[in-house]
Structure formats: structure tokens, C-alpha cells
């Protein structure tokens, strides 16, 4: 009887008591500021656990497979319609939350989540090129840095294996629109990529160290990640391809089968506070979508060339849409051909 009572009280505790105050966040690796989590835990008493993923597809596949136990996920804009369409996200109506007033106007009515019924801005940035200007001093604002690389950089180039971004950059370089299924453009893209590959050294993620230590001199990379490289090695510079470059925004969403729904909503509201949004940016070095966060940001971020897009190149950035499954299949084939 005593045992039964103990078991029952444990059960009661785990559903209603102190242990219920927890939150399982599933986010990109090396992307969440520990200070942000400390602040959240201190203010709300909710215990946070973070699990990493390295690509949108990994996150999508894992959550679709079920049994994940996560409450929060942070997908990129082009994936959010998939998550919503597959019924994986909960309609938490962030637009009715108290801190929603802080969201920058241009990030309210976005294509991927009109009116923000599901998601809250986390960070946004661009995918462009990275060049160590100690080894090459020409114009770096072009995708030719990896598609038709100058002699000096050959053999020291790394392209992040993010199919969507690399395809978008290449398609725009060869005169198409992201998600095109125009075979003429795609043929040029495939042939161009395959021909360029002989000049690449690798296709890998997580190259901060290798760029800082000059194992790698150029490649495709994200702006914030390049910013962090430059802080370790001042020769590492970021270029915005004038042929066009993809923009992306990662947004905080609550999973449809989340166990800690209230805690997750509290977190969504929490990250829309300017001071907290600044903490997010301070760590991963990307811009956030929250008004009034600037005063809380580190000084070196306000004028950083990786954060402030040059005026003449602003309009070359496009938020990439979700490609339809048939087009995606073509891209996978090209991608496999590239890596065979």
C-alpha cells in the first residue's frame, strides 16, 4: 500500500508538480545563447533542455518520425510551409502575445507564415561567400568565388552542403530564379557546379576553426558564421553575390505534439522582448527581427559588414520559397551528381 501511494505521488508530481516546469528545445547547433537560457530559467523557473540539429531536413525527418519529445523547433522560412502543411506545428497565435508589438513590420506579414499565426522571429541572415582576403584581393561580391574561382583560391574552397542555399546561389548566378524547374538553367547549374567542384577542398559544416586557422580560404557560408570567423581572423571577409543571394529567417515554433505547451508559448513571447532578442544576436551574430533590440547589442555588431547589407546590394537578396516536390527531386539528382 505504501509503495502504491509512493508511486501515485511520483506520478502526480510528474504531471502537475515541480517537474512539469520544463521545456525541450530542438534548435540548430551552436545557435542558442546560454545566457538567454539562464535568463529564461531565472525569470520563469522553467528548466530548459536543448538538443542540436545540423540541418532543416534532419529536424524535419526526426520530428516526422515521432517519439522525439521536443516542444520547440526553429526551422528556416522555406521549410515552415512544409511543417505547417504536414500538421507538425501548433497554431499558438504569437500575433496575440503581449510582446508581438516589438516585431519589425516587415517580418509580420511574411510569405511563409502570413500574420504570424505559428512562428516568432529568431534570427535572419543571408547565405553568401566567404573569402580570406590575404590570399585574394579582387571583388568578392560574386558567386564566382566558388562557381568560377580565381586561381589564387583554388583547392582551398569549402561549400556548405546545404542543398537549398547552394542551388539558389548557383541558379541565380546562371540567370534563373530560386526553385526554377527550367531545364536549360538547371543544366547550366549542374555542369557549372560539377566543373567547379574540382577546385573545392570540401563540402562540410562547422568550419569556423578551419577558416580561422587558414586551412580554408574561401567558400559558401552564412553571414553570422562568417562574422564569428572574422572575430578570430581579421582576413576573413563576407561577400554578397551581386548575381543574387538567398535570405533566410529561422523562426521559433511550437510542435503540434508538444507536452509543455504553456512553457513553449512563454518562450515564444520571451524571445520577442528586445533585450532577449539582443542576447540571441550577441551569441550567434545574426540580426533578429525585433525592434528596439539594437541598444542592447554589442557595439561591434551595429556596423558589422556581415550584418549591414551594402545599400546597392540590398535588393539582390531574396527570401527563398519552398520548392515543390518535383523540383526538389530534380535538385536532389543534381546534388547527387555533384557529389558522386
Amino acid at each position: 500500500m505504501k509503495k502504491l501511494f509512493a508511486a501515485a505521488s511520483v506520478l502526480a508530481l510528474s504531471t502537475t508538480g515541480v517537474w512539469a516546469q520544463e521545456l525541450q528545445i530542438y534548435n540548430w547547433g551552436n545557435y542558442t545563447n546560454p545566457k538567454l537560457i539562464d535568463k529564461f530559467e531565472a525569470e520563469t523557473g522553467i528548466k530548459v533542455t536543448i538538443t542540436d540539429y545540423d540541418s532543416n531536413d534532419t529536424a524535419l525527418a526526426k520530428v516526422k518520425a515521432g517519439g522525439h519529445g521536443f516542444d520547440i523547433v526553429v526551422p528556416s522560412n522555406s521549410y515552415i510551409p512544409i511543417w505547417v502543411g504536414e500538421g507538425l506545428l501548433m497554431e499558438t497565435r504569437p500575433d496575440q502575445m503581449p510582446n508581438f508589438k516589438n516585431v519589425k513590420a516587415e517580418f509580420v506579414d511574411v510569405d511563409w507564415d502570413p500574420g504570424r499565426h505559428y512562428t516568432v522571429p529568431w534570427q535572419w541572415g543571408s547565405t553568401g561567400v566567404v573569402v580570406n582576403t590575404k590570399y585574394y584581393d579582387g571583388d568578392i561580391n560574386t558567386s564566382a568565388m566558388f562557381l568560377d574561382p580565381p586561381e589564387e583560391l583554388r583547392g582551398k574552397i569549402n561549400v556548405v552542403p546545404e542543398m537549398g542555399d547552394v542551388m539558389s546561389l548557383s541558379i541565380m548566378y546562371y540567370g534563373g530564379e530560386p526553385c526554377t524547374n527550367d531545364k536549360e538553367v538547371l543544366k547550366k547549374v549542374r555542369d557549372g557546379l560539377v566543373a567547379a567542384k574540382q577546385h573545392w577542398l570540401g563540402m562540410d559544416y562547422g568550419n569556423l576553426e578551419k577558416f580561422a586557422k587558414e586551412d580554408l580560404w574561401a567558400g559558401v557560408n552564412w553571414n553570422g558564421s562568417t562574422f564569428r570567423m572574422r572575430l578570430q581572423n581579421e582576413n576573413v571577409n563576407y561577400g554578397y553575390p551581386k548575381e543574387g543571394f538567398p535570405l533566410w529567417m529561422d523562426s521559433v515554433a511550437v510542435l503540434a505534439d508538444a507536452k509543455n505547451v504553456e512553457e513553449a508559448k512563454t518562450f515564444q513571447n520571451f524571445v520577442m522582448d528586445p533585450e532577449n532578442a539582443a542576447l540571441i544576436s550577441e551569441f550567434a551574430r545574426y540580426a533578429n527581427g525585433i525592434n528596439g533590440s539594437e541598444p542592447f547589442m554589442p557595439e561591434d555588431m551595429k556596423s558589422a559588414p556581415e550584418i549591414v547589407i551594402p545599400a546597392e546590394l540590398v535588393e539582390k537578396g531574396v527570401f527563398t520559397p519552398t520548392c515543390d516536390p518535383e523540383t526538389q527531386k530534380l535538385y536532389t539528382r543534381i546534388w547527387t551528381d555533384l557529389q558522386k
Binding site: 542543398m163 577542398l201 570540401g202 557529389q339
Partner: peptide, 25 residues
């Protein structure tokens, strides 16, 4: 192969991973 080969040339294990991830097949 992924860490030391730099991921430029797929090995069979990586090809399988591609189908379950970005390839969605």
C-alpha cells in the same frame, strides 16, 4: 569519411543519409 574526407565525395553511407535527409526519398 564525412569528417576527414570533407564531404565532397559521398561514401555509400553518406548517400543513404542524403536520401533520408535533404533528398527526402
Amino acid at each position: 569519411p564525412r569528417v576527414l574526407g570533407g564531404g565532397k565525395n559521398l561514401m555509400f553511407g553518406n548517400l543513404i543519409e542524403l536520401q533520408f535527409g535533404q533528398g527526402r526519398n
